[in-house]
């Protein structure tokens, strides 16, 4: 749904832009194409990587790992799995809910969700193209560590009830 909204907004803005200044709109589209063409090789590579990683780290695999482990070891494992995979939210959240129902801990689930969203191992090639190696590595490491704080606090708040 939100994707269509994005299209709608873009088309509306494009129409307004075209109405106001044809030349500028042309220039904007040219820039858009140039920026896209520039990153396309990395995008394609990353998408192939995502396909291969997810074929191995599928939902059943994730639930086996996160579902059975407990304690901090389970949290670390969940965080690593989340960091490596790139599962879309509409698959990840129901999977996480299912895992909670089948007995997984809040801490593990929180670690998994947090690294899943904030840490991108497979998207590394795209990120370094824009931000360089040092920043990309530092950002991902910090986000990974931060996920343990998130896991701990959610474990306290949500798990403690």
């Amino acid at each position: 749904m939100s994707n269509y909204l994005l299209y709608l907004i873009t088309i509306l803005l494009l129409i307004v832009s075209f109405y106001k200044d044809k030349q500028k709109t042309k220039k904007a589209l040219k820039k858009a194409w140039k920026a896209f063409e520039n990153i396309l090789p990395e995008f394609l590579g990353v998408i192939m990587l995502v396909g291969m990683v997810l074929a191995v780290f599928n939902a059943e695999f994730v639930s086996r790992i996160i579902g059975t482990q407990s304690g901090w070891f389970g949290v670390i494992l969940a965080a690593v799995v989340g960091a490596i995979t790139l599962i879309p939210g509409f698959v990840a959240f129901p999977t996480a809910a299912m895992l909670l129902e089948s007995g997984a801990g809040y801490m593990q689930i929180a670690a998994f969700i947090s690294t899943l969203m904030m840490v991108g191992v497979v998207t590394y090639p795209v990120e370094i193209k824009y931000f360089g190696k040092s920043l990309t590595i530092a950002r991902n490491i910090l986000a990974f560590l931060f996920s343990f704080i998130v896991a701990y606090l959610i474990g306290k708040v949500a798990g403690g009830m």
Binding site: L6, I9, A28, L29, A35, F36, F43, I47, V50
Partner: peptide, 25 residues
Amino acid sequence: ITGYSLKEMALVIPPVFILLGLLDI
């Protein structure tokens, strides 16, 4: 899965890049 991700990319990427072109100009 790659095919599926490509579809997802096709849905998100064109508006994102057009928006950034418009923003830039």
